[in-house]
């Protein structure tokens, strides 16, 4: 079982990141849970969600020691960096996060999602850039499975939006070797 916390400002699409990943993992046959932060906790602009993916039944959808942390802004890094399990991985939006974790046991994937998304002509797809890197690094589901889910979730929206999302995902995916 692996657990991931996705966190950032409201509007950065962090709930979408977790949801789309959980959706894809479900379609790949895994047990999944997706738990968003809610209520007063999210007022004031920060949002996060936890996704658990497992071969077996999932006991708790909460991650007290997540394997992965995906952070889109500074406050989220401060909030969650010391919760990650020993040797876990942080995916970090280096375009706007200046700080770096002090822990030496963590692997850090820096993703300049802002710059990449701007180059693609749509700053709003930063989250999908990061998802490209995340899917690549974690290796649990195939990129095709992820994009298929993303397309399903996007539904009837304009084709051009899915196109830029696909490009964003590919850019993130190819960022990590």
């Amino acid at each position: 079982m692996t657990k991931t916390i996705f966190a950032g400002f409201g509007g950065q699409g962090v709930l979408m990141m977790g949801y789309s990943y959980a959706h894809a993992a479900m379609n790949e046959g895994y047990e999944v849970t997706y738990l968003p932060s809610y209520g007063a906790e999210v007022r004031g602009g920060t949002a996060n969600c936890t996704v658990a993916v497992s071969d077996d039944e999932i006991a708790s959808p909460i991650a007290s020691e997540p394997d992965y942390l995906v952070v889109m802004n500074n406050p989220s890094l401060y909030m969650f960096q010391n919760r990650i399990t020993l040797g876990g991985v942080i995916f970090l939006n280096s375009s706007i996060i200046e700080a770096r974790p002090t822990r030496k046991d963590l692997e850090i994937c820096e993703i300049p999602a802002g710059e990449i998304a701007t180059e693609l002509g749509n700053p709003r797809v930063q989250n999908i850039v990061v998802m490209g890197a995340y899917v690549k690094k974690t290796g649990r589901i195939s990129p095709d499975a992820y994009l298929k889910s993303l397309k399903k979730i996007m539904g009837e929206k304009k084709k051009s939006i899915m196109d830029v999302n696909r490009k964003a995902f590919t850019a993130g995916y190819e960022l990590l070797s």
Partner: peptide
């Protein structure tokens, strides 16, 4: 409870 209500599952 809030967890079952808020959580998504297949």
């Amino acid at each position: 409870d809030g967890m079952i209500g808020q959580m998504m599952e297949p």
